[in-house]
């Protein structure tokens, strides 16, 4: 196989084979052991279908996405300008970096009791948790992006005698954008991890809640699909 058709096939077929093999093994093992706690893949599909049909699934997905959207959006609004500033102004870096490096390794789970205390059990708690867990990776990534700009870009711009403001706007920001996007990818990943954990503990809606809720019912297949 070669040429235009061969390339997409080579890209799509191997992961599909792995997926199909995993489902086949899952199905075979569950059927062979007649397990009471593991549903078959088909039971998971029908479980998810039921939830999707009565609208519960979309409600919970919507609730989770709303929290991630707001928390992550706020984190981007804070982290990107602050990260650029810390990268560009040495004094700002020296002043704030130690504090952020200390706050950054605190587990988002450890913030949960404080979040509940401060914001109650509504939407604000998970939004705060998402914000606090995704803001630091993005800030660090943006700052280090500014620090690792190739010197020749800055020197080339300096040769044209541009002001510091123009240099920042025309050279620094475009040069750092790829790092900012990497930071956003890390941030949205963390945000999605955290929203599920937060909903398991504090809330009555969202995918995390749905998992915990279905765990307590006989509909164990639900837990696997969306658990649905």
């Amino acid at each position: 196989m070669s040429g235009a058709i061969g390339e997409p096939v080579r890209r799509v077929v191997p992961p599909l084979l792995v997926l199909a093999a995993a489902v086949a093994v899952w199905w075979a093992v569950v059927s062979a052991t007649r397990s009471a706690i593991f549903p078959t893949p088909w039971q998971v599909v029908t479980g998810a279908w039921e939830l999707a049909e009565d609208g519960t699934l979309w409600e919970h997905i919507g609730a989770s996405l709303f929290r991630v959207g707001v928390g992550f959006g706020l984190a981007v609004l804070v982290a990107v300008p602050f990260g650029l500033w810390m990268g560009w102004v040495l004094a700002a870096y020296r002043t704030f970096n130690p504090v952020f490096q200390m706050l950054r390794p605190i587990s988002p789970i450890a913030w949960i009791p404080l979040a509940i205390l401060w914001f109650g059990v509504g939407d604000l708690s998970p939004i705060f948790l998402i914000f606090i867990s995704s803001v630091f990776p993005m800030m660090v990534q943006t700052t280090s992006g500014v620090h690792t700009i190739e010197r020749r870009y800055l020197r080339a711009a300096a040769n044209f005698g541009v002001s510091r403001t123009v240099l920042f706007r025309r050279v620094v920001i475009p040069a750092v954008l790829p790092e900012i996007i990497v930071g956003m990818r890390i941030g949205i990943g963390v945000a999605w991890l955290v929203v599920v954990a937060a909903e398991m503990i504090a809330l009555r809606s969202g995918l995390g809640y749905l998992i915990m809720d279905s765990r307590a019912t006989p509909a164990i297949a639900t837990t696997w699909s969306s658990p649905a």
């Binding site: 989770s64 954008l177 790829p178 990818r185 999605w192």
Partner: peptide
């Protein structure tokens, strides 16, 4: 859980789409 994984994948792909924005292209096509 499978749905959570799938949505996470979609969110990541959505963020990656930003890499195609015009001000960024110069960096990748170099």
């Amino acid at each position: 859980m499978i749905i959570i994984g799938l949505i996470g994948l979609l969110l990541d792909s959505g963020t990656r789409l930003l890499e195609g924005l015009r001000p960024l292209r110069w960096r990748y096509v170099r």
